[in-house]
Amino acid sequence: MNVSRLATTVLQYVFLGTAAFLSIFPFIWMVISSTNKSIDIISGRTGIGDAFGINVANFFSQVDVPLVFWNSVKVSVLATLLTIVVSSLAGYGFEMFRSKARDRIYALVLLTLMVPFAALMIPLFMMMARSGLINTHIAIMLPTIASAFIIFYFRQSTKAFQTELRDAAKVDGLKEWQIFLYIYVPVMRSTYAAAFVIVFMTNWNNYLWPLIVLQSNETKTITLVVSSLASAYYPDYGVVMIGTILATLPTLLVFFVMQRQFVQGMLGSVK
């Protein structure tokens, strides 16, 4: 190996090593800091401390943890399931039953990908207020269910679904909804898994809309709780760290268990 080749290799490792360290460091920081007192955290202590027990105890005394966690799980899982059902029906419908009118509408649906949420939140808030849904979990879920991105993802994936399967089922006398439920869904389960992971992450981390709609402590999700703990005048960072760990753990877990589906779901749009 000549010198310049060797230099290139070393440079690559230094580049990757630095990038990897900077990427992981905040996670390590989160874990280390959960064992330290607030004052030690903001003065940059990098050693493991002995305040973990106190931080956990303080967190549990300030926050109704089971309730908050349940709120987050309920909202994210329900909204995700609804999104997947509704969007996969649409993706299947747009691909399997093509017509000029539906193709035009599909183009309009894709156009909604560009609509910024800021331009929706005021009318949505007024709508929910009029319907008496402020401070309810239904209000959080309703606007997130129809997702142009997931419809697009399912339509793209449906292109790989073999129409022979559908034709055979038709000959056997199955109705359209039966074909969808008994043939399409089982065949496409990896597509469903990837969509689940991606939508769940989005819902779990959703912030702005819940911040607007959820106003009482009984309905708040973990993301909102972490945010409000950290925006206190003198935040107790030890307690905040326990919150960030709890908020991050489920998504980390989903990521490591379903890494392949996660990446597949993310890339779904460019294939």
Binding site: V86, S87, L89, A90, Y92, G93, F94, M96, F97, R98, S99, R102, I105, V109, T112, V115, A119, L120, I122, P123, L124, M127, L142, P143, I145, A146, A148, I151, E176, F180
Partner: peptide, 20 residues
């Protein structure tokens, strides 16, 4: 064709097209 896409279109109409 319309039945499969109807739920999504309805939700998009109420929670996206109307608000914008």
């Amino acid at each position: 064709g319309w039945l499969f896409v109807a739920p999504s279109l309805l939700l998009i109409a109420i929670f996206l097209v109307y608000p914008i």
